[in-house]
Amino acid sequence: MSRVVGKPKVRRRPSLPMRRWITRAEFEALMEAEVFPREERLELLAGELTRREPVNTAHAVAVVLVSEALQQVLPKNLHLRAQLPLALSDYDEPFPDLAVVSGSPRDYLSQHPTSALLVVEVSEASLKTDREVKGSLYASAGIPEYWILNLRERVLEVYREPAADTRAVYGAAYRWQQTLSASEQVSPLFAPDARLAVQHLLP
Protein backbone atom coordinates (compact mmCIF):
# COMPACT_ATOMS: atom_id res chain seq x y z
CA MET A 1 0.00 0.00 0.00
CA SER A 2 1.49 3.34 -1.05
CA ARG A 3 1.99 6.01 1.55
CA VAL A 4 1.17 9.65 0.85
CA VAL A 5 3.84 11.97 2.22
CA GLY A 6 2.65 15.37 3.36
CA LYS A 7 3.97 18.22 5.44
CA PRO A 8 5.02 17.56 9.07
CA LYS A 9 2.06 17.52 11.42
CA VAL A 10 3.14 20.23 13.85
CA ARG A 11 1.12 23.15 15.14
CA ARG A 12 4.13 25.43 15.06
CA ARG A 13 7.69 25.09 13.97
CA PRO A 14 9.83 23.66 16.78
CA SER A 15 12.82 25.64 18.01
CA LEU A 16 15.64 23.26 17.15
CA PRO A 17 19.03 24.26 18.60
CA MET A 18 20.91 22.47 15.79
CA ARG A 19 19.00 24.14 12.97
CA ARG A 20 21.13 24.79 9.88
CA TRP A 21 20.32 27.97 7.98
CA ILE A 22 21.04 28.31 4.26
CA THR A 23 23.11 31.30 3.20
CA ARG A 24 22.44 33.35 0.10
CA ALA A 25 25.68 32.09 -1.49
CA GLU A 26 24.61 28.48 -0.87
CA PHE A 27 21.14 29.18 -2.22
CA GLU A 28 22.56 30.64 -5.42
CA ALA A 29 24.90 27.67 -5.82
CA LEU A 30 22.02 25.23 -5.36
CA MET A 31 19.91 27.05 -7.92
CA GLU A 32 22.79 27.22 -10.40
CA ALA A 33 23.38 23.48 -10.00
CA GLU A 34 19.65 22.92 -10.64
CA VAL A 35 19.26 20.91 -7.44
CA PHE A 36 15.64 22.09 -7.30
CA PRO A 37 13.26 22.16 -10.29
CA ARG A 38 12.84 25.70 -11.64
CA GLU A 39 9.08 25.34 -11.56
CA GLU A 40 9.22 25.32 -7.75
CA ARG A 41 9.91 29.10 -7.87
CA LEU A 42 11.93 29.20 -4.67
CA GLU A 43 13.29 32.23 -2.85
CA LEU A 44 15.32 32.62 0.34
CA LEU A 45 13.75 34.32 3.36
CA ALA A 46 15.49 34.40 6.75
CA GLY A 47 17.73 31.51 5.73
CA GLU A 48 14.86 29.24 4.71
CA LEU A 49 13.68 28.11 1.28
CA THR A 50 10.21 29.44 0.53
CA ARG A 51 7.93 28.84 -2.44
CA ARG A 52 6.70 31.95 -4.22
CA GLU A 53 3.05 32.47 -5.07
CA PRO A 54 2.07 30.64 -8.29
CA VAL A 55 1.68 32.92 -11.30
CA ASN A 56 -1.89 32.51 -12.51
CA THR A 57 -3.24 34.52 -15.44
CA ALA A 58 -4.41 37.48 -13.32
CA HIS A 59 -1.04 37.64 -11.55
CA ALA A 60 0.83 37.54 -14.87
CA VAL A 61 -1.33 40.27 -16.43
CA ALA A 62 -0.89 42.47 -13.35
CA VAL A 63 2.91 42.17 -13.51
CA VAL A 64 2.84 43.26 -17.16
CA LEU A 65 0.45 46.16 -16.48
CA VAL A 66 2.48 47.53 -13.57
CA SER A 67 5.68 47.06 -15.56
CA GLU A 68 4.31 49.03 -18.52
CA ALA A 69 3.09 51.84 -16.25
CA LEU A 70 6.41 52.15 -14.42
CA GLN A 71 8.47 52.00 -17.61
CA GLN A 72 6.72 55.14 -18.84
CA VAL A 73 7.89 57.22 -15.85
CA LEU A 74 11.36 55.73 -15.21
CA PRO A 75 14.24 58.22 -15.28
CA LYS A 76 17.21 57.20 -17.43
CA ASN A 77 19.37 56.40 -14.40
CA LEU A 78 16.96 53.68 -13.21
CA HIS A 79 15.71 50.41 -14.67
CA LEU A 80 13.05 47.81 -13.95
CA ARG A 81 13.62 44.16 -13.02
CA ALA A 82 10.78 41.63 -13.15
CA GLN A 83 10.76 38.55 -10.89
CA LEU A 84 14.53 38.66 -10.42
CA PRO A 85 16.58 38.36 -7.21
CA LEU A 86 17.47 41.06 -4.72
CA ALA A 87 20.49 40.21 -2.55
CA LEU A 88 19.27 41.90 0.62
CA SER A 89 21.36 40.07 3.23
CA ASP A 90 23.49 36.97 3.74
CA TYR A 91 20.26 35.03 4.41
CA ASP A 92 17.70 36.81 2.24
CA GLU A 93 17.21 36.71 -1.52
CA PRO A 94 13.61 37.42 -2.47
CA PHE A 95 12.33 37.52 -6.05
CA PRO A 96 9.88 40.45 -6.02
CA ASP A 97 7.46 40.71 -8.91
CA LEU A 98 8.98 44.08 -9.83
CA ALA A 99 11.85 46.18 -8.53
CA VAL A 100 13.08 49.58 -9.65
CA VAL A 101 16.85 49.72 -9.16
CA SER A 102 19.56 52.24 -9.92
CA GLY A 103 21.93 52.10 -12.85
CA SER A 104 21.73 49.97 -15.98
CA PRO A 105 21.22 46.19 -16.32
CA ARG A 106 24.92 45.61 -17.04
CA ASP A 107 25.84 47.11 -13.67
CA TYR A 108 24.69 43.80 -12.14
CA LEU A 109 26.74 41.31 -14.12
CA SER A 110 28.83 40.34 -11.07
CA GLN A 111 26.10 40.34 -8.42
CA HIS A 112 22.39 41.00 -7.94
CA PRO A 113 21.20 44.41 -6.69
CA THR A 114 21.43 44.84 -2.93
CA SER A 115 18.66 47.45 -2.74
CA ALA A 116 15.90 49.09 -4.76
CA LEU A 117 14.00 52.36 -4.91
CA LEU A 118 10.65 50.61 -5.24
CA VAL A 119 9.56 47.00 -4.81
CA VAL A 120 6.18 45.74 -6.02
CA GLU A 121 4.54 42.44 -5.07
CA VAL A 122 1.38 41.26 -6.85
CA SER A 123 -0.48 39.45 -4.12
CA GLU A 124 -3.47 37.22 -3.59
CA ALA A 125 -2.73 33.94 -1.78
CA SER A 126 0.50 35.36 -0.34
CA LEU A 127 -1.03 38.55 1.06
CA LYS A 128 -0.19 37.85 4.72
CA THR A 129 3.43 36.96 3.91
CA ASP A 130 3.81 39.98 1.63
CA ARG A 131 2.53 42.30 4.34
CA GLU A 132 4.15 40.91 7.47
CA VAL A 133 7.31 39.13 6.32
CA LYS A 134 8.38 40.75 3.07
CA GLY A 135 7.21 44.18 4.20
CA SER A 136 9.46 43.93 7.23
CA LEU A 137 12.34 42.55 5.13
CA TYR A 138 12.14 45.39 2.61
CA ALA A 139 11.92 47.95 5.42
CA SER A 140 14.96 46.43 7.14
CA ALA A 141 16.88 46.76 3.85
CA GLY A 142 16.03 50.47 3.75
CA ILE A 143 13.96 50.25 0.57
CA PRO A 144 12.08 53.58 0.62
CA GLU A 145 8.86 52.43 -1.02
CA TYR A 146 6.96 49.14 -1.22
CA TRP A 147 3.73 48.44 -3.09
CA ILE A 148 1.40 45.48 -2.73
CA LEU A 149 -1.03 45.18 -5.62
CA ASN A 150 -3.76 43.41 -3.68
CA LEU A 151 -5.75 41.40 -6.22
CA ARG A 152 -8.03 39.99 -3.54
CA GLU A 153 -9.46 43.41 -2.63
CA ARG A 154 -8.50 45.16 -5.88
CA VAL A 155 -6.54 47.93 -4.18
CA LEU A 156 -2.96 49.18 -4.14
CA GLU A 157 -1.27 49.22 -0.73
CA VAL A 158 1.54 51.78 -0.56
CA TYR A 159 4.18 51.62 2.18
CA ARG A 160 6.84 54.26 2.87
CA GLU A 161 9.24 55.48 5.57
CA PRO A 162 11.08 52.35 6.71
CA ALA A 163 12.00 52.49 10.39
CA ALA A 164 13.02 50.25 13.28
CA ASP A 165 10.15 48.29 14.85
CA THR A 166 10.92 45.61 17.42
CA ARG A 167 7.52 43.99 16.88
CA ALA A 168 8.17 43.29 13.19
CA VAL A 169 9.67 40.07 11.82
CA TYR A 170 12.95 41.67 10.71
CA GLY A 171 12.96 44.40 13.35
CA ALA A 172 11.76 47.06 10.91
CA ALA A 173 8.50 48.17 9.32
CA TYR A 174 7.05 51.00 7.25
CA ARG A 175 5.66 53.87 9.32
CA TRP A 176 3.50 55.31 6.53
CA GLN A 177 0.79 53.30 4.78
CA GLN A 178 -1.95 54.18 2.32
CA THR A 179 -4.53 52.01 0.58
CA LEU A 180 -5.66 53.30 -2.81
CA SER A 181 -8.81 52.18 -4.59
CA ALA A 182 -9.09 51.61 -8.34
CA SER A 183 -10.42 55.16 -8.84
CA GLU A 184 -7.35 56.79 -7.26
CA GLN A 185 -3.83 57.59 -8.46
CA VAL A 186 -0.33 56.94 -7.11
CA SER A 187 2.93 58.85 -7.55
CA PRO A 188 6.12 56.85 -7.01
CA LEU A 189 8.73 58.52 -4.82
CA PHE A 190 11.31 58.24 -7.60
CA ALA A 191 8.95 60.14 -9.96
CA PRO A 192 6.85 62.42 -7.74
CA ASP A 193 5.31 64.34 -10.64
CA ALA A 194 3.96 61.20 -12.29
CA ARG A 195 0.38 60.12 -11.82
CA LEU A 196 -0.42 56.43 -12.29
CA ALA A 197 -4.06 55.37 -12.21
CA VAL A 198 -4.52 52.34 -9.96
CA GLN A 199 -7.21 50.98 -12.29
CA HIS A 200 -4.57 50.72 -15.03
CA LEU A 201 -2.43 48.53 -12.76
CA LEU A 202 -5.20 46.06 -11.95
CA PRO A 203 -6.02 43.15 -14.30
Results as ranks from 00 to 15, higher is better:
Gly135Cys: 05
Ala164Asn: 09
Arg20His: 13
Leu84Phe: 03
Ser183Gly: 00
Arg13Tyr: 04
Glu28Ile: 08
Leu80Cys: 03
Ser67Arg: 14
Gln83Ser: 11
Glu157Phe: 00
Pro94Leu: 08
Arg13Leu: 14
Arg38Val: 12
Ala182Gln: 06
Gln71Thr: 10
Ser115Glu: 05
Leu149Gly: 06
Glu184Leu: 05
Pro162Tyr: 07
Pro14Ala: 06
Val158Gln: 03
Gly47Gln: 02
Arg20Ile: 15
Leu118Arg: 06
Val186Glu: 10
Glu157Pro: 01
Arg11His: 12
His112Thr: 05
Ser104Tyr: 02
Gln178Met: 04
Ala25Asp: 11
Thr114Glu: 13
Glu68Ala: 12
Ile22Asn: 01
Arg52Gln: 11
Arg11Asn: 14
Ala164Cys: 09
Glu53Met: 15
Glu124Phe: 03
Glu121Ile: 01
Leu201Asp: 00
Val100Pro: 06
Arg152Pro: 00
Leu45Gln: 03
Asp165Ile: 10
Pro8Gly: 07
Arg41Lys: 14
Leu137Asp: 01
Ala164Ile: 11
Val35Gln: 07
Glu34Lys: 15
Glu68Thr: 12
Pro17Leu: 05
Leu201Pro: 00
Ser102Asp: 06
Pro105Ser: 02
Trp176Gln: 15
Trp21Lys: 13
Leu127Ala: 04
Lys7Leu: 15
Met18Val: 14
Val55Thr: 13
Ser2His: 15
Arg3Pro: 00
Val155Leu: 07
Arg11Ser: 12
Arg51Glu: 05
Pro144Met: 06
Asp92Glu: 07
Glu184Thr: 03
Ala25Cys: 01
His79Arg: 10
Gln199Val: 09
Tyr91Met: 10
Pro14Ser: 05
Leu98Gln: 12
Tyr146Phe: 14
Ala168Glu: 04
Thr23Ile: 09
Gly171Trp: 10
Val61Lys: 15
Arg195Ile: 05
Val100Tyr: 04
Leu70Tyr: 02
Asp92Lys: 06
Asp97Thr: 11
Leu98Ile: 09
Val186Ser: 08
Arg11Gln: 15
Glu153Ala: 15
Lys76Arg: 14
Pro105His: 04
Leu189Ala: 15
Ala29Ser: 10
Gln71Cys: 09
Val198Thr: 09
Arg38His: 12
